[in-house]
């Protein structure tokens, strides 16, 4: 595994660990995770609830506020380590250089604020446009994300929008400052399948037209396969496998990836791993070895690590449990 950050990448995260401590114990939500988001690419992070995919991205952006949170590692964004920035410096990047799209567009939009005001808020706040241009700007953004009749819609409140339109408005907010990076956390999970396709098309179109890199967090491997250039598969706070979408589609090495492909989570539940167990129970104490290995398996001596798959540059898999599965868990 690479030890140092890659300065050529837009966002380069190395050895990120995030833990939450309270009186009952310590929860290791993210354990020694590394990834890069390169210029103009869609980078997919796939995993089930509680796999640490959201925490790994939101924590480095200062979006998680918790008194017991400990974070270590390195997160280089355009030459600056986000983990070393003060909250004030970080909030200058947030919204301005990094935009966010969240899962549930209705609850993520302020119900008592006009759509237009919400779209123009960040650019006005960051001093990119004046207050007087706000409305005009919002209309332009609504048009850009494909909302019809934007001159009228700009004065609507979120509850007057349909689900797909709300997510389009959310995207308009996220790209309002023309950011370099868009973090999309389950952007289509709350939407209909037909709307989902349109939203994904919109995101990919924006990537091309505005040269935005996208970090796409999703539990849906199909969505990731359709949109992402490269993919990391996470489980239990660690990366199980990563590579280009094509590599993983062609040759999924890790049993968890295969399970995801088969949508075989029911099976994994029967083996005693409830979905989201790690975060929900709050008692996920870091064990040695790969988190995918059942707790009653023989203990391993070293932490999980990624090794290159044979003959496939860029395709890596969590080695430890490959061994363990070879030893009879598969």
């Amino acid at each position: 595994m690479e030890r140092t950050a890659d300065p050529s990448a837009l966002l380069s995260v190395r050895n990120l660990s995030v833990s939450f401590s309270d009186a009952t114990g310590t929860l290791h939500a993210v354990d020694n995770v590394s990834f890069d988001v390169r210029d103009g690419e869609v980078f997919g992070i796939v995993g089930e609830s509680g796999s640490g995919k959201t925490v790994s991205l939101m924590s480095i952006m200062g979006m998680i506020e918790s008194s017991g949170m400990k974070i270590s590692g390195e997160a280089l964004f355009r030459g600056r380590d986000l983990l070393r920035l003060s909250p004030a410096e970080l909030s200058k990047i947030r919204g301005r250089e990094i935009g966010f799209v969240f899962q549930n567009p209705l609850s993520s939009l302020n119900p008592v604020m006009k759509i237009g005001a919400q779209i123009a808020e960040a650019p006005v706040f960051h001093g990119l446009i004046g207050r007087r241009q706000a409305k005009e700007f919002a209309i332009h953004m609504l048009e850009l994300v494909g909302i019809e009749n934007p001159e009228k819609r700009v004065n609507d409140y979120p509850h007057q929008f349909s689900g797909g339109m709300r997510q389009r408005a959310m995207i308009a907010i996220a790209i309002s400052c023309n950011p370099k990076l868009l973090i999309c956390d389950e952007p289509t999970t709350a939407l209909d399948v037909t709307v989902e396709q349109k939203i994904l098309e919109l995101l990919l179109g924006l990537r091309d037209s505005r040269k935005i890199s996208i970090a796409l967090i999703t539990h849906d491997l199909t969505v990731a396969m359709n949109c992402a250039d490269r993919i990391s598969v996470m489980y239990g706070g660690a990366v199980m496998e990563r590579g280009s979408a094509a590599q993983i589609l062609r040759n999924p090495l890790h049993p968890y990836t295969r399970e995801l492909f088969a949508a075989d989570l029911e099976n994994s539940r029967r083996r005693g791993r409830e979905e989201g167990e790690a975060l929900v129970s709050g008692s996920f104490l870091r064990r040695e070895g790969c988190p995918f290995v059942p707790a009653d398996a023989p203990p391993f001596v070293s932490r999980s690590f990624l090794v290159p798959a044979d003959g496939e540059p860029g395709h890596e898999v969590n080695r430890l449990h490959l061994d363990s599965f070879a030893g009879g868990f598969a």
């Binding site: 952006m61 004030a88 909030s91 947030r94 919204g95 969240f102 919400q118 808020e121 907010i173």
Partner: peptide, 9 residues
């Protein structure tokens, strides 16, 4: 959370 993501204090 959306408001925080815009960079507001």
């Amino acid at each position: 959370r959306t408001a925080v993501s815009k960079g507001l204090g």
